[in-house]
């Protein structure tokens, strides 16, 4: 039982806080991957790779922020992928109504119509998240079951609404998804990455510096203890699932923008990728430990893996998903083992 005496903390400790194996493990995994790809893929250590990682990772990052809240309070939200799809579909649907597209269907949409086409879908996603949360708390069923049903509902609503058509989305989403601020002529900081960073920072501040954030951790750490201390743990769970639904919706909008339209094949693997990112960063699936910094590391690791594998030219395209899965499994197991040996 090592007791850190608070009076003689070293400077390093004061700057970085207390580091444990579980904090370092995800960073080590990331470093190993970077070194590996630098050796194997000649073009890897170039600004273009960073641009790509940031762009590819941003949708995942936005969704992972909400999912981190859910996992921290020891619940799960399986609906994130389909909520992302639903939000984007509704956005596309609204955007093609006459109020936005004009009577001929080709006019420039007025600004208020764009706002409606983005805000209303996000609000419906929030509503669906609240529904999942309230049902989870009220029925005392695991959120696994409730959000599984919600996943199917969101998927079904998307199909019914779009009739399997490709739908156009507002140009502002396309700009966010594809453009950025040019910093040098070879390095462009994409708007989607900036948006993801903003969502991350908000998430981090809420978790670390608000009472709500503390209650999320304590509810996940020991729900009964939190309840006995007067925390209304039911509300915390509902709020986490609602947050997760909103970030999922936002991620879906950005993804549709990146792909210039919305179609039913989008976001199919978003859920599992986001769970992998959060857990890869070292946030526990059982609640109470983890945080936004870790999720950020997880998202970057995941994106580096994806981009890096694509840069190795001699791998058969059809073998890439298999390799992705294998490397992911190794990384998860190694991180998991390292963080257990505290």
């Amino acid at each position: 039982m090592a007791v850190p005496p608070s009076q003689n903390r070293s400077l390093a400790r004061r700057l970085f806080g207390r580091w444990e194996a579980s904090d370092v493990a995800p960073l080590v995994s990331l470093a190993v991957l970077v070194v590996f790809f630098a050796l194997v893929a000649p073009g890897f250590l170039k600004p273009a790779t960073v641009v790509q990682v940031l762009k590819q990772g941003s949708v995942l990052a936005i969704v992972s922020v909400g999912l981190t809240f859910v996992l921290l309070c020891a619940e799960i939200d399986l609906a994130v992928g389909m909520l992302a799809l639903w939000t984007a579909c509704l956005c596309g649907f609204l955007f093609q109504r006459p109020f936005a597209a004009g009577p001929s269907g080709a006019g420039a949409a007025p600004a208020w119509a764009v706002v409606v086409a983005i805000a209303v879908p996000l609000a419906t996603s929030l509503l669906l998240g609240l529904t999942s949360g309230l049902l989870t708390v009220w029925s005392r069923l695991p959120s696994f079951i409730i959000s599984l049903a919600m996943m199917n509902i969101a998927d079904g609503m998307s199909r019914w609404l779009t009739k399997s058509e490709n739908l156009n989305v507002p140009s502002i989403l396309k700009t966010i998804g594809n453009r950025g601020i040019e910093i040098t002529n070879r390095f462009e900081l994409s708007y989607s990455a900036l948006l993801a960073a903003a969502v991350f920072i908000v998430g981090h501040v809420v978790l670390q510096h608000t009472r709500f954030g503390r209650y999320v951790y304590m509810t996940g750490g020991n729900r009964e203890a939190a309840r006995l201390a007067g925390v209304r743990t039911g509300r915390i769970v509902v709020a986490c699932l609602a947050i997760s639904a909103v970030t999922a919706g936002l991620g879906g909008l950005v993804n549709a923008g990146r792909l210039n339209s919305v179609s039913l094949d989008q976001n199919a693997d978003l859920l599992l990728s986001a769970v992998a990112c959060v857990v890869l960063g070292g946030t526990s699936l059982f609640g109470g430990s983890g945080g936004m910094g870790r999720t950020a590391v997880g998202v970057i690791t995941f994106s580096v893996l994806k981009v890096g594998l694509n840069q190795i030219a001699w791998i058969d395209d059809l073998a890439r998903p298999l390799l992705m899965g294998l490397v992911l499994m190794v990384a998860l197991v190694v991180n998991g083992l390292l963080s257990k040996n505290k």
């Binding site: 304590m218 020991n222 203890a225 925390v231 109470g288």
Partner: peptide
């Protein structure tokens, strides 16, 4: 009554 994996101060102020 306590969150064992959390720091003492977080338990005290909960």
């Amino acid at each position: 009554t306590l969150v064992h994996d959390a720091e003492i101060y977080k338990n005290v102020t909960l």
